[in-house]
């Protein structure tokens, strides 16, 4: 079974109202899931229709002239720089294209067998996306969320009481969920995760680790 995000989430993404952290996780998911990508395209068409149907609001009389004047003076579009690749990934592994423009920090200790690394610089540290990397069979500290947690599996698999998740799956865990996901036994697991709101560590190691993560 595949774990696809809800239409509600994909519509918010297509409309541009999803917060930047979750939007990045969704963007990465879309490169791995044609069904979700198709759905987002449909919702963007909805956006196109909303634009066609928007009531016209007159611009100042010289608006076209002003815009034409700027056409001649603008420098060509900047090509976004590629992020620095501080975190070495497994041999041959490539991150999904939307992550390529972000700086990736060093791998840091989170729990035995589990390391994490932050992505990007913008926004508040607490909502910044991170990469989690877990050795085979290792358990992420038990935690609950004060906000929604979005986790995209980039490599390997993840398992919790609710199910098994594989490459490309996007897990949306709401605030009521308290879980202790574990990586599959055969392969390391790398995922992209972001929490919209605070993460609450429950276990002792979690509570020790929490201040290190800046939550």
């Amino acid at each position: 079974m595949s774990h696809r995000p809800s239409d509600d989430l994909l519509m918010a993404y297509a409309a541009g109202t999803l917060a930047p952290g979750p939007a990045l996780v969704v963007a990465a998911h879309l490169t791995m899931c044609p069904e979700s990508a198709e759905r987002v395209r449909a919702f963007e068409i909805f956006g196109g229709i909303a634009l066609e149907d928007a009531s016209e609001s007159a611009l100042s009389p010289d608006a076209l002239e002003k815009t034409l004047a700027r056409i001649d003076s603008v420098p060509p579009a900047k090509v976004a720089e590629r992020g620095k690749w501080l975190a070495e990934l497994s041999e041959g592994m490539r991150l999904p294209q939307p992550l390529e423009h972000y700086d990736i920090g060093k791998w840091k200790f989170l729990a035995p067998g589990v390391r994490w690394s932050s992505i990007g610089r913008g926004g508040s540290a607490r909502n910044r996306p991170m990469l989690l990397r877990s050795k085979p069979g290792m358990v992420l500290p038990e935690h609950s969320h004060a906000g929604t947690e979005y986790t995209l599996i980039l490599k390997g698999s993840l398992h919790d009481a609710d199910g098994d998740y594989h490459v490309g799956d996007l897990i949306v865990a709401d605030a009521s969920l308290e879980h202790e996901p574990a990586a599959g036994p055969d392969e390391e697991c790398i995922c992209l995760a972001v929490v919209d709101g605070r993460l609450r560590m429950r276990s002792l190691v979690g509570r020790l680790v929490q201040p290190l993560m800046g939550f």
């Binding site: 609001s57 611009l59 608006a63 815009t67």
Partner: peptide, 13 residues
Amino acid sequence: FGYFAPRLKGFFM
């Protein structure tokens, strides 16, 4: 521009 600019403005508003 004639078609889209006024709609864009309306859309943003």
